[in-house]
């Protein structure tokens, strides 16, 4: 696979994996390793002043190996998303991780669907770009919103295949392909990453076969019966889709076309 370039970031592996919802930090570590990912996402939350175990996620992530992509999950206004982005950057600057330069922007509309609020996303994108961030913006699969977010200055747009954590895969392949078409018009290297909704390996392949530059997922691995095995499946699925897209699929046809020649058959052919 070619490296994926998102502004000043060069990413070797196009699978971005989240760190949420694993049963233990140890399983998370193994799953991340098995997925082959280079980019891992994290969330910013209030430090619990009384934490029995006193364990920090940061103790379980090899910061020399992974590029951390902090998100603004849980933010419903542009203002809050900007605050969280600044806090995430501060944390990563302290850790000396290159992820300090970017953010996965989420400005959500409501808690039930977790769908992105396009107006808030655009507002926050503009502001964060001014603050010097490389903005990777989560959005729904609406192609026109995606274009507006790109115009606002996002370095990558990340349309959702289906709602976050729903495991429904790519529900509207047409919309994802229209997002890709519009975002890449005259700008073929503009990065588009399908984010959210992946339930199993084939969903990743489908996203990549549509021409996505990468896939971001979390629950599909973390809540699989065997997260480590699923992580391996996701890695292969991504590669399969990447290669198939570049190889160029055959057009779909209504009727069969024989793979073995009819010329020279010794059999009776109906209708001839």
């Amino acid at each position: 696979m070619n490296a994926l370039r998102i502004k000043n970031f060069e990413i070797r592996n196009r699978l971005f994996v989240g760190t949420g919802k694993y049963e233990t930090y140890e399983i998370m570590q193994k799953a991340l390793e098995a997925s082959g990912c280079q980019v891992v996402t994290v969330a910013v939350r209030r430090e619990r002043l009384i934490d029995q175990q006193g364990r920090s996620l940061l103790d379980y992530l090899d910061l020399s190996k992974y590029v951390i992509l902090p998100n603004t999950a849980g933010c419903f206004t542009a203002e809050d998303a900007i605050r969280v982005a600044l806090l995430g950057r501060e944390l990563l600057e302290k850790q000396g991780n290159p992820g300090a330069g970017w953010v996965k922007l989420e400005v959500l509309g409501d808690k039930k669907t977790l769908l992105a609020d396009p107006v808030g996303t655009i507002e926050a994108t503009k502001e964060l770009v001014k603050e010097g961030f490389t903005v990777l913006a989560y959005t729904s699969d609406d192609p026109r919103s995606a274009v507006r977010i790109k115009e606002a200055g996002a370095a990558a747009v990340m349309p959702a295949g289906s709602p976050i954590g729903s495991g429904q895969g790519v529900l509207n392949p047409l919309n994802i392909s229209l997002c890709l078409e519009l975002l890449k018009e005259g700008d073929p290297d503009y990065p588009v990453i399908v984010d959210a909704g992946v339930g199993t390996a084939s969903d990743v392949t489908i996203a990549m076969e549509l021409g996505a530059d990468g896939v971001l997922l979390n629950t599909g691995i973390a809540h699989a019966k065997d997260p480590v095995q699923m992580a391996v499946a996701m890695r292969h699925a991504l590669e399969a889709g990447y290669l198939a897209y570049r190889a160029g699929r055959i057009p779909k046809k209504r009727y069969a076309t024989a793979s073995s020649p009819f010329e020279g058959v010794i059999s009776y052919i109906p209708g001839e």
């Binding site: 989240g18 994290v42 910013v44 939350r45 002043l49 999950a73 944390l91 971001l216 997922l217």
Partner: peptide, 10 residues
């Protein structure tokens, strides 16, 4: 005052 850190997230 808000004191925050990283937790698992997607």
């Amino acid at each position: 005052v808000e004191i925050v850190t990283f937790v698992g997230g997607g």
